[in-house]
């Protein structure tokens, strides 16, 4: 599986992580191009259904990023994210999709961390192999 290029979906919150991604860009930090960013107003906007749909459509890994605990623009949004992601990670593990979802806090000042997170995650998914749900459309 040497030519496998993972498709990564990154959810960034509008207030911290998106600005963090921006900073990584203006600082000219290099990171893999496998990831596509979706900006959401708050990381807690990301629902199980978004993650399931993405996996079902063949995304290999999903990264959810948000403000650090205590820094949320909406005061407690990311606490909800934290609780919710824990459950989804467990559920995916139970379904046999271990390690395909990752939650990371990235602040607006952490361009470097954003770069590292993406790089690490892409490598992790590359090692894990393609999403078994890929090409899931009914064939017979």
């Amino acid at each position: 599986m040497s030519d496998f290029e993972p498709d990564i979906l990154t959810f960034c919150c509008n207030w911290c992580s998106y600005a963090g991604a921006d900073l990584a860009g203006v600082s000219r930090l290099q990171y893999p191009t496998n990831s596509r960013v979706i900006r959401v107003m708050c990381s807690s906007r990301v629902e199980p259904i978004h993650i399931l749909e993405a996996l079902k459509e063949g995304t290999d890994g999903i990264l959810v990023t948000g403000c650090h605990i205590g820094d949320c623009h909406y005061i407690e949004g990311n606490i909800h994210t934290d609780e919710r992601m824990k459950e989804i990670v467990d559920a995916l593990e139970h379904l046999g999709l271990r390690d395909r979802l990752h939650l990371e806090w990235v602040s607006a000042a952490e361009g470097k961390k954003f770069q590292e997170t993406i790089t690490d995650f892409v490598e992790k998914i590359r090692a894990l192999g393609p999403n078994p749900l890929k090409n899931n459309k009914k064939e017979e």
């Binding site: 399931l52 749909e53 079902k56 009914k138």
Partner: peptide
């Protein structure tokens, strides 16, 4: 709402959402 027969049968979104939604 997020499920359609057109998706596919093999991994029904309907059941996936229900599994998560009712897990607690």
């Amino acid at each position: 709402l997020f499920h359609s027969l057109g998706d596919n049968y093999k991994m029904s979104m309907f059941h996936l959402v229900r599994l998560l939604h009712l897990s607690d």
